[in-house]
Amino acid sequence: MHQTFDAALEINLLHANQEGAEHNRAHFDAWGITCLNIMSSPGAGKTVLLEKTLAALNQTLKIAVIEGDMTTELDADRLRQHNVPVIAINTGRSCHLDSKMVAGGLHQLEHQYSPSDFDLVLVENVGNLVCPAEFEVGEHAKVALLSITEGEDKPLKYPVMFQEADCLLITKMDLAPHLEIDVNRIIANVRQMNPGVTIIPVSAKTGEGLTAWFDWLQSQIPSAEKIASKLPDLTSA
């Protein structure tokens, strides 16, 4: 005869991932590394933003990239052109990075380099406006990208992503004259669920907003010297 028992768990469903994320963050803290988790839908401009960021900052900051993609190393190869270590993680069928995958990336970093030399690890997540926001990987801050071609209503449709972001970059601003998009509406929609988020309209093509992005990024690194004054003027014609 079977008897039924109850075991009260009261455990967060993502408990295992959260523990892994805290473990990764402890490693970053011990090494003096700031980690940013960069997320957006596919095609919003994460990789090209990283290219611009690496080109501008890799002389003044020691940066490594953890590149998440379901398949291929196409994005990782693009970023390796900037002479920074890029650890590629293929997630297979998983539509987001999780803390265990990033832990694997950290082990690679540890074995191939001296981690405490690095100032910054940029994690480029899988293109997806849904799941990455729920799965911490050990980051100190979340950066979300939304291109103006995606529409004003996306923050309302994908609220968790925009609520979790510490910085939101509105990308492809060079296309604004060709679109009937009200950027102020995008900003108002985001502020409904995240009044304190830093919002920076940017264009990787023209350089608009990139200095402000670099300033914000630098502000996340506790020990970085003021580098804004050393950066090239990216908005010159």
């Binding site: 005869m1 008897q3 039924t4 009260a8 768990l9 009261e10 455990i11 469903l13 409904q192 009044p195």
Partner: peptide, 24 residues
């Protein structure tokens, strides 16, 4: 005013597990 204080709706929890035991 913005939504800053969420009181319910962010839960992702395993409350309890029911299991059987053979007690012949």
């Amino acid at each position: 005013s913005p939504m800053e204080d969420i009181r319910s709706g962010r839960e992702l929890k395993i409350n309890r597990i029911e299991y059987c035991s053979d007690s012949t």
